[in-house]
Amino acid sequence: MHIVDGALSNPVVIGGAVAAAGGIAMGLRNLPLERIPAAGVLSASFFVASLIHVPIGPSSVHLILNGLAGLVLGWAAFPALFVGLLLQAVFFGFGGLTVLGVNAVNIALPAVLAGLAIRPLLARGSPLQGAIWGGIGGGAAIALTTLAVAVSLMLSGDEFLLAAKLVFVSHIPVMVIEALLSGAAIFLARRVKPELFADAKGSLA
């Protein structure tokens, strides 16, 4: 899902950087000092979760779980996922530096949207109902991320049209897996720690 340096046109790169700065500022405003430990530990756990490889047929995919991050963190998912991307770029060489903003928007904005739209529904009804909403959130976020990657490629030039379409189609199995996993994770969280999603007022961290 990472776009690299040099592929995108300047307006897309600059637009992405500005939008990412806005998103980070918004996320930090929703992150009082008291909640920084929770956000930091969750940001680290999503970093670790992204190293998990899940088998699919003869191959395997690595998880992104940005939808789940959004469901748990709300707006704070934006800076948390940005930090993850920064660490990946600097220490593992994934992605790039000038495209950091675009990548952050592509991954974190769907997470925040999923969080805002679906988080209030997670605590309602039985754990199974919460899990279904969680699955929808997890799947929708990754679908939006793929779409955003495709759009940022297409905005940069028509030559990427085919690549953008292929990115979307090839990620459909990933969407299904992320939806299933997010649903199961929410199901477990609802059973083990029901108060997690109980506070209706927005985000946990």
Binding site: E34, P37, A38, G40, V41, L42, A44, S45, V48, A49, I52, V54, P55, L63, L65, L68, V72, I177, L180, L181, S182, G183, A184, A185, I186, F187, L188, A189, V192, K193, L196, L204, A205
Partner: peptide, 24 residues
């Protein structure tokens, strides 16, 4: 497999949140 991995991630989140409470 997918359910088990989902529970694994969910358990990690629950434990992470409890850990963050102790840290705070």
């Amino acid at each position: 497999t997918y359910r088990s991995y989902g529970y694994l991630v969910g358990m990690m989140l629950v434990r992470a949140i409890e850990r963050s409470e102790r840290i705070l």
